[in-house]
């Protein structure tokens, strides 16, 4: 598993009097295969995971993935870290399903045949092979999220970060996404408000106001999170 190292990271948004500290002196190393992140709205979860592929540059401190700095070696890091967002519509960039999957493979020095084979493989693996030439906008919400996942996973990242991938989905579609994530060999960092997704996870971080207030097994983390919510 890759080693994610977050050293003394703080981060703020805004300028002048509107400046707000969103992450405060985070210091954590993640090496487990399955890492969950929970916390209230605005507690800094999304900002934290955006650090992991260099979408957010920390104001102070450093973030490395397998020794590569997310700011200095951003390009290398993004090749290894796949990212899946909440809103699948915003992640699909090509008009049709197969084209979107193939998009992630361009400029990787693959031949047309290799791209076609890998695209087909990913579509089959995620139950989309019947939709290869369909317009992406006609897929259901769950299928769109599976497409977004397929488009990221086809590039074979070592680490997959998911920021609330099931928030917009109904129970059945959420279960489909969950079973895909369960089956992955890669390291996974998952942000969610659906606590049942964290069953079987190795480690769960609980965020509150920009700090990690609990770090441990899922059961204890859920208790800590519930205590915060009712405090």
């Amino acid at each position: 598993m890759p080693e994610i190292r977050v050293s003394h990271v703080s981060h703020s948004f805004g300028d002048g009097s509107a400046r707000r500290t969103v992450l405060t002196d985070l210091d954590v190393t993640l090496t487990e295969p399955r890492i969950g992140i929970v916390g209230a709205n605005g507690s800094g979860k999304s900002t934290f995971v955006r650090l992991l592929n260099g979408l957010v540059h920390p104001d102070s401190g450093t973030v490395t993935v397998d020794g590569r700095d997310t700011v200095r070696d951003g390009r290398e890091v993004r090749r290894r870290v796949g990212f899946c967002f909440t809103d699948p519509d915003a992640q699909i960039v090509m008009p049709t399903v197969a084209e979107d999957v193939a998009f992630g493979l361009r400029r990787r020095g693959l031949t047309k045949d290799e791209v076609r084979a890998r695209t087909q493989g990913a579509l089959t693996a995620y139950g989309l092979s019947g939709h290869a030439d369909h317009p992406a906008h006609l897929l259901s919400g769950g299928q769109k999220q599976l497409l977004a996942l397929a488009s990221v996973l086809v590039t074979e990242p070592d680490l997959l970060v998911l920021d609330e991938p099931t928030t917009l989905l109904d129970l059945r579609n959420a279960a489909m996404v969950r079973s895909v994530v369960d089956g992955l060999a890669q390291q996974v960092v998952l942000v969610t408000h659906h606590l049942d997704l964290l069953d079987g996870f190795d480690r769960v971080l609980v965020f509150n106001e920009g700090r990690i207030v609990h770090d441990g097994a899922p059961a204890g983390a859920v208790v800590a999170y519930r205590a915060l919510a009712t405090a």
């Binding site: 390009r75 915003a90 998009f103």
Partner: peptide, 17 residues
């Protein structure tokens, strides 16, 4: 808002790299 998220997703998918 869509454009904003799309821009972020494009970066995550390595468009700027």
């Amino acid at each position: 808002r869509h454009a904003d998220r799309l821009g972020e997703a494009l970066t995550a998918r390595g468009v700027d790299d």
